[in-house]
Write a protein that binds this DNA or RNA. Structure first.
Length: 502
RNA sequence: GCUCGUGUGGUGUAGUACGGUCCAUCAUUCCGGGUUUUCAUCCCGGCGACCCGGGUUCAAAUCCCGGCACGAGCACCA
């Protein structure tokens, strides 16, 4: 019957049995992050940066999502410094403190646990030995090139079958410096015939003789990320790992290690790559070079995509958090525009930003007619509590942007004006037509200031005129008709604004 | 080459585990209109999408197979 009658009759058939089954309900969008699975025993999440510089905008997602999940499930958050490489990405002593500051600014809270891998070396050494004694790992003396060839041909390396005693002996040589860098690595014993080449006897330890900024020359062999991270996640009781999908093979490698050690691997979520268009896309090391060569003034240079630069320009961490939470965790590679982040920020700060006028390319016009000695304007159109500022009109002139000059326009908050032979006559105080409204300044109530604007790799420093309002250093203001800027300095002899965004 | 992953409007996202409640959610951009003494804010309206092809089924964004596209890993970096 079903076959011949079609969907309609099936629908009515179902309707007779259970009317609710065919009721249509408007679908809704799930709000916030999708809850984690397997949370019955509580959650522990972690954010694990390399301390080779302060946090950049690229780290923000990792900080925000992990932190949000931890607080959403009343769990703990571990901030871990993965600093076991002293050569390729050498740690920077100051960065540890910077990252904690950046973390606290962005999340509004302190991490529950802070751990540096470099202070945990005894733990890693102990587990490496356990692994070797269990014949779950071995010391390999092949060169990188030799092993690469073995990996692709699925062949065992000559050191793979050594006895535990021989391995322990070689391991000791790695630790005490009888081996030189490159002479040997510790590998996790997996299976050379594994279909995924990345998993075949993957390297866990290598030799590095460089001094470490935190622990000096205490160690000559260091664990690689996959080993160190796996051990530390277990030690800290991490329940959920959220990482980039480029690290999927890391999960697989680490699971093989967990199998050797008899541990249960955490739940793992992945996200895709995010590229942010319109923000400088440079790496931490590139920024560092730019600072060293004096191209940038520091890690908070307005041109540089670090969190501290964004903080300095006036970004609101609450807006940043909601931006990343809204994006959620998907494995799609996404491209977002810096303008989107700015729009999110603008929405967040609009209601609290005081309004003032700034003129960057000034010209004076004479105004005449019935003028009050001063007018009072609100600092915010929708919020009386923001207070008011007084503008003196004693001089009978107004300063406007050159590009706003027309024969007829309205000086915002004052009156319509009309050019009569170059002199502007005051007209209606009421707004009674749709002539353009422009912002303006009075020479008696304005001061000069510096407006710093980052445009790509350029720093545009403009000398401007601005209202002499009583601004506070650090506050974010909206420049009428222009956009937002943060007050860097506001003292009688030096006023400096830093451009934020429209 | 081997391995893995992802494809929903311009952008981002919900829905996909249990096919019908989806002629597909929400936000933003864009377009039009309104409010407003800012090109800000706010309000209303509109445009706009399930990668392609087969299959299963009364019914597929959802399940299966095959393509295609894009991305990642195969470092003695993280």
């Amino acid at each position: 019957m079903i076959h011949s009658e079609g969907a309609e009759s099936v629908r009515s058939l179902i309707e007779n049995i259970d009317p609710e089954a065919v009721q249509r309900t408007k679908q809704t969008k799930r709000e916030g992050l999708k809850p984690l699975d397997n949370i019955s025993t509580g959650v522990v999440l972690r954010f694990a940066p390399n301390p080779n510089g302060p946090l950049s905008i690229g780290h923000a997602r990792g900080v925000v999502i992990n932190h949000e999940y931890a607080s959403m499930h009343d769990g703990k958050m571990v901030l871990r410094f993965d600093d076991t490489d002293t050569i390729v990405k050498p740690p920077m002593k100051d960065a540890y403190e910077w990252i904690i500051e950046d973390y606290e600014w962005l999340t509004g809270s302190k991490p529950d646990i802070v751990v540096r891998a470099s202070e945990r070396m005894p733990v890693y050494i102990r587990y490496a030995e356990e692994m070797i004694r269990k014949s779950a790992g071995y010391v390999c003396e092949c060169s990188a090139e030799e092993f690469r060839a073995l990996r692709v041909s699925k062949k065992a390396c000559p050191h793979r079958g050594r006895s535990v005693e021989e391995n322990i002996e070689a391991w000791g040589k790695m630790l005490d410096g009888r081996f030189s860098p490159g002479d040997a690595v510790v590998r996790v014993l997996t299976d050379m015939s594994l279909p995924n080449p990345a998993l075949r006897d993957w390297p866990a330890w290598r030799i590095q003789h460089e001094a470490h900024p935190m622990v000096g020359n205490s160690y000559l062999a260091w664990p690689l990320l996959d080993f160190q991270s796996a051990i530390e996640d277990h030690e800290q009781g991490v329940t959920h790992i959220i990482r980039g999908k480029d690290l999927m093979d890391s999960t697989r490698k680490q699971k093989l290690l967990y199998d050797h050690l008899g541990w249960k691997y955490p739940e793992t979520l992945y996200w895709g790559r995010v590229s942010i268009h319109g923000s400088g896309s440079f790496s931490t090391s590139e920024i560092r070079r730019g600072i060293e060569s004096k191209m940038y003034s520091g890690w908070d240079d307005p041109r540089v995509p670090t969190l501290r630069s964004m903080r300095r320009r006036g970004f609101d961490p609450v807006a940043l958090r909601s931006f990343w939470v809204d994006m959620g965790v998907t494995q799609k590679d996404v491209a977002v525009a810096m303008e989107s982040i700015e729009a999110s920020n603008a929405a967040s700060i609009d209601s609290t930003s005081r309004r003032i006028s700034l003129v960057s390319d000034p010209m004076s016009i004479a105004i005449q007619g019935e003028l009050p000695r001063e007018i009072v304007l609100p600092f915010h159109p929708d919020d009386e509590k923001a207070g008011t500022r007084e503008i003196s009109l004693a001089s009978g002139t107004a300063i406007i942007e050159k590009e706003d000059l027309k024969n007829s326009f309205r000086l915002k908050g004052l009156a319509n004006v009309e050019s009569v032979g170059g002199i502007f006559e005051i007209g209606s105080v009421e707004r009674d037509d749709d002539r353009p409204i422009i912002h303006w300044l009075s020479p008696d109530s304005s001061v000069t200031c510096e407006l710093v604007m980052a445009i790509g790799d350029e720093l545009n420093i403009m000398s401007c005129l601005v209202e002499d309002a009583d601004l506070e250093s650090g506050e974010v203001v909206q420049l009428e008709r222009k956009g937002f800027a943060r007050v860097e300095k506001w003292s009688p002899n030096s006023r400096k604004l830093l451009w934020l965004h429209r």
